[in-house]
């Protein structure tokens, strides 16, 4: 029962993250396309297009990362890795999970700290005067969702992470 509720939440949050990341990438492609067409066709470029691209990149990268951590599987890259996983699959699985969890938490702390710091000193980007806190803020919010997803979904996975 609990497991089902967990799966449901994981699915919903994953879908939200995927939608955000895909939407941002789509807008990025169309934006740069229109910007160039505008510049040559109508002698008019989109003001601050590069700053918009930067903001969209944050959404693509962090929503994508949050999505991947919940769904993607670890790729085995070394021989030792292989050996250890065969000898002690549960140990390897859980040590990998705990290690990733700690690093993820650390990353979250760093991003939130940056966002709050930027919020406090009210700086803006040079061209569009977008508030600087938006960048780490979006990254922190998306990563928080990813963290929750990671926490819920990893123990749910019953298959061997090596697939």
């Amino acid at each position: 029962m609990r497991r089902q509720a967990g799966s449901y939440l994981v699915a919903a949050v994953s879908k939200l993250l995927a939608t955000l990341a895909c939407g941002a990438l789509f807008v990025m492609a169309v934006l740069t396309f229109i910007d160039v067409i505008g510049r040559y066709g109508f002698n008019n470029s989109i003001f601050g297009a590069s700053e918009l691209v930067e903001l969209l990149m944050v959404a693509v990268v962090f929503a994508g990362f949050a999505f991947v951590t919940a769904t993607d599987q670890h790729i085995c890259v070394t021989f030792f890795d292989h050996l250890l996983t065969e000898r002690a699959p549960a140990l390897m699985r859980w040590s990998r999970f705990l290690f990733s969890l700690v690093v993820y938490a650390l990353l979250l702390y760093i991003l939130w700290d940056m966002a709050l710091d930027a919020l406090a000193n009210a700086r803006t980007t040079i061209v569009l005067a977008l508030p600087i806190w938006l960048f780490p803020g979006i990254a922190a919010a998306l990563s928080s969702l990813g963290f929750i997803l990671f926490l819920l979904s990893y123990p749910l996975r019953e298959d061997d992470p090596h697939g």
Binding site: M28, E54, L55, M57, V58, V60, L111, M114, A139
Partner: peptide, 26 residues
Amino acid sequence: ALAMTGQQVMEAAASYGLSVIPLFIL
């Protein structure tokens, strides 16, 4: 060390130059 990590991460993520990566992949 934490500030350096945050700066490096955000600098790479919010990079106009690196936006070619997702676009060419797409």
